[in-house]
Amino acid sequence: MTVKYTKEHEWVRVEGDVATVGITPHAAEQLGDVVFVELPDVGAAFERDADMAVVESVKAASDVYAPVSGEIVEANGAIVEDPAQVNADPAGGAWFVKMKLSNAGELGELMDEDAYKKLLESL
């Protein structure tokens, strides 16, 4: 099971035809303390790069984009209830949504861990 990354600092973990999506520890750190999370409804469909979710800190709101195209099959209500989890465990328990992939070919265009690490070093 591999984890892929976007240049917008989202991570995607694929099992079968379902992708779990979250934001990276780098993104969580840049946001600061997350105080509000808005997630899409189960059943909603998104094209890649569409605004899918919102995370807000005390001072700013940021969009989370769909890293791949697909339909939402599960949303992580725990981070809506307790947004601080996004800072505490961004790469694990604080995943955002699970999506049923509609175009698995898009996965090949995402970065692997080495490429993402290089991106972070270049920032």
Binding site: G32, D33, V35, S57, V58, K59
Partner: peptide, 11 residues
């Protein structure tokens, strides 16, 4: 704008 503690803890 902020220090390493961040806006929440500074506030």
């Amino acid at each position: 704008i902020q220090y390493p503690d961040g806006v929440m803890r500074e506030h």
